[in-house]
Amino acid sequence: MVDLNKAQEIVDHYSQVEGGLLECLHGLQQAFGYVPKETIDIMADGFNISRAEVHGVISYYHDFRLKPYGRTVVRICQAEACQAMGSRALSAHVAKKMGIDVGKSNEEYTLEAVYCFGNCALSPNLEINGKLHARVDQDNFDELIKKEGAV
């Protein structure tokens, strides 16, 4: 169950902030791990905009999700500096190892594409549960996911 009182508190806070909808969404996502659908009405009320507008903002940005993440979240860079160091092959390996495609999610795993962590002198980069790892190759990924993954 989503704690709607908590959601209300977050919305009350950020609706007082000028242009605060993105901050609010980040706040909700931090509290719940995702943006629960039940909070859309609360936001529409709090910010005095339509539900469609709230939805429009959520769907526009890659960062916001309406569904919970898997227990282990891997975010892998797909941009040029990582491509130059073999991120295409690495991504394929990671997808195979985790058993899902980039951009997909299940209860256990979420595998997301990111376009640049700003660590381009040490590519390829990926993040496991919020921690950034540089110079990742197929072998050390297998080690990392064992060590840092939630399972």
Binding site: G19, L22, H26, D63
Partner: peptide, 25 residues
């Protein structure tokens, strides 16, 4: 400090303004 949400085009200055206002970029 305001935090973006993973959109490249929000680096374009007017999209950034929209985003800072809490809208689609």
């Amino acid at each position: 400090v305001r935090i973006g949400a993973g959109s490249y085009v929000c680096g374009e200055e007017t999209a950034m303004l929209e985003s800072l206002e809490g809208k689609r970029g």
